[in-house]
Each structure stands twice: as structure tokens, then as C-alpha cells.
Nucleic acid binder design. Structure first.
Lengths: 181, 181
DNA sequence: CAACATCATTTGCTGAACAAACTAGTTTCG
DNA sequence: CGAAACTAGTTTGTTCAGCAAATGATGTTG
């Protein structure tokens, strides 16, 4: 339904709203994550690295919207700080799997608390019930976007379980996922 | 074993969700705003410039989270494209007020439709009722953030309506060309 | 084995944020 | 009045992230 919108059309403000909220999130998060090399980016990587199945760098980059080339030196710094480790996948030695170290888990635990508080603060203007809905909708929208993203090949998405290390059965699926070149 | 915390931590995903959604918004918007110099940035500026009370550059920069120095050449390009005009405030000749031209209004009208469609598409994964709530919450959060921002002086905020005066009395033209180019 | 594809790294380029210096105009105060 | 302090905008330089292309190491296929 198009509400007959005056100048300040509610539709056209979504981008602005998101930008402001995300910006504020980034700003506060960055200030509270001084113990992680690249701030919120490092935090996101670390968060993804604690999974049972360590993600590959490509999967990380795609999931976190970080460029592959940036991911390289980002991991360099995280590794140097002792928070993660790159382990060559025994099944495919081209692949590096990013694992959180014990120290990485500890640091992450503390960071998570701080980030949680930041997020509450960022959404301070939204009443309690709406806040949970906002989170849920944001997550839903983001998930939907990632699944249907043109640059995201479902075969390349982070494989959640795949315990066996049977390797990426569909490693070649879908051809080009804009490989580094 | 590995993860005492399955990343079900609902709090810690807000930043990621917002980043993905905003990223998608930006990506699609950018592709649909080829007729406005700096894409979504130019669009935001243009949107703010159609108000009855033309905002100053500082107010624009603050409202749109764009750096002052970036705002300068952003406006240069918008002005060169004939979409906005800088008019010296007669009451304070240091101040430039950014006004949309007639052509700017036309371009914006078309752009707004496209952006609206983009936003619907970005939120495609969210069911209809939740979508409106999401918009509203995002706007609420953003507004609250802007109001409580340490760098935001309420006296500098763009004045919303303030009744009449559709034009700044100072019609007299141009003054100085900004950049000889 | 040769040709090709994929993952990761490196390098070059562009755009944006940030800070600081600078110009122009305004206000404050001696 | 006039110098100092302040503000709005511009310019410049640095840094960082994203994008693209080239390279090396591995894996896969013919």
C-alpha cells in the first residue's frame, strides 16, 4: 500500500534509518572492541570461527561481506594476536579453515557481552516488544538476502554441519563465484 | 564441546543483519540511481534538499552521516548535474543552503519510485505486517540515535516544517562559483 | 601428463572517512 | 574601530576498505 506520502515518504527512509542505526552500532562496537584487531570485523570473524565446522576463508568473506583480499590481512592480524588459527584442510589442501583458539574463545566471550550491551543501547529508542521483533525481522531479511544473493552460490555457502569432511561435494558448483580474480 | 554457545546468541547478530540488509539496499539502490551523480548519497542529499527550509551543508552532513569534506565535492557534482543549487544565506553569508532545482525535483520523483521498489525487494523475506513494523522501528531507532548523538546540536538540526516561508528570501543569484573546475 | 578450475595471497586502483590546514565571513570584546 | 575568537565551507593528505587482476599452490578432469 502506498500511503500517499508527503515529502518524507516513509518508504524512502529505510536506507537512511538503517545507515544511522548501523553506523551507531559500528561506532559503539568499535569503541568497545579494542582488544580485537580489526574491531567489529575481527569480532564477526571470530564469532564465525568458533563453529564446530571451521569455515573456509571464502565462506567467511561471503558471509561477512568482507572482500577476500581484506580477509587475508584481517586473518593475518587475528592470527598474530593469537585469536584464530589457519589450518590447512586435510581433504583439500588449498583450503584454509579458520579456527578460534582457546584465547580467541575467551576474548570473544567478553566481547560478546559488551556487544550485547551496545546493541541494547543502539535500540534504546525502540520499546521492548518491538525491539525483539526488529531483531527478528532484521535477521529474517538478512538471511533471505544471503540465500537469494546473486553473488552467493548456495553451494558455496557456509556448510553448517557436514561433519565428515567429505569435502565440498559441490565444490565446483555454479562455476564462478567471482573468484579472487 | 567446541561451542558452549551455539551462535544462537540473538544479540550478537544484529550488526550482521543490519550490515547485510543495508548492503543489499545500497547495492540495489546504487544500480537504480545511475542518473544521480553519487548514487544513493546523491539521492539522500537530494531528498533532504527539497524541503521548504533548505538545509545548510553542515546540517546535511550531520543528518546524512556524510563527512563535511565529502559533502563538498558531492554537492559540486550534484550542482554540476543541475540537480541542486548552493545559495548563500542572506542572513549569514558563510552559510550555503542547498536547494533542489526543478530538474532535481523531477529526477528525485522518478528515483523515489525506484528506491521504493528496491526497499520492498530488500525486505522481501519479511512478511507484510512485520515489514511495516520493521520500517517503523528502524526509523524510531535512527531518530532516537540522531537526537541523542553527542555530535548533534539540536540547534543545527534541519528544521522540519516551521510553517510558511517556502523560499529563503534571498533569491539573489549565485555570488561566486565554487570551483573553477 | 596437460589443461583447466579453485583457494588464497599479492598488487594496483578507486572511493570514502578522518584530520588538519586554510579561506571567508561573523561575533565578541578591548 | 579593530584584533581575537568563532563558524561554515573548501582543500589537502593520510588511511582504510572494496574491487579487479595477476600469481602460486593445489585439485580435478580429459
Amino acid at each position: 500500500m502506498t500511503t500517499t506520502t508527503p515529502d518524507s515518504g516513509p518508504g524512502t527512509t529505510l536506507g537512511w534509518s538503517l545507515a544511522v542505526v548501523l553506523r551507531r552500532w559500528h561506532e559503539l562496537t568499535e569503541a568497545s572492541l579494542t582488544d580485537i584487531p580489526h574491531g567489529s570485523r575481527g569480532y564477526h570473524v571470530l564469532t564465525a570461527a568458533v563453529h564446530a565446522e571451521p569455515p573456509t576463508q571464502a565462506a567467511l568473506a561471503e558471509r561477512l561481506l568482507i572482500d577476500r583480499s581484506v580477509m587475508t590481512y584481517l586473518l593475518d592480524d587475528l592470527e598474530e594476536a593469537g585469536l584464530v588459527r589457519r589450518r590447512v584442510d586435510p581433504g583439500d589442501r588449498r583450503v584454509r579453515r579458520v579456527c578460534a583458539t582457546e584465547r580467541g574463545r575467551e576474548v570473544l566471550a567478553g566481547a560478546r557481552d559488551r556487544v550485547d550491551r551496545v546493541e541494547e543501547r543502539v535500540l534504546a529508542g525502540v520499546d521492548e516488544p518491538a525491539r525483539a521483533l526488529f531483531r527478528a525481522s532484521a535477521l529474517r531479511a538478512a538471511t533471505s538476502i544471503q540465500e537469494s544473493s546473486p553473488t552467493t552460490d548456495p553451494c558455496l555457502a557456509v556448510r553448517e554441519v557436514v561433519g565428515g569432511g567429505d569435502g565440498p561435494a559441490g565444490g565446483r558448483g555454479g562455476g564462478r563465484a567471482r573468484r579472487g580474480a
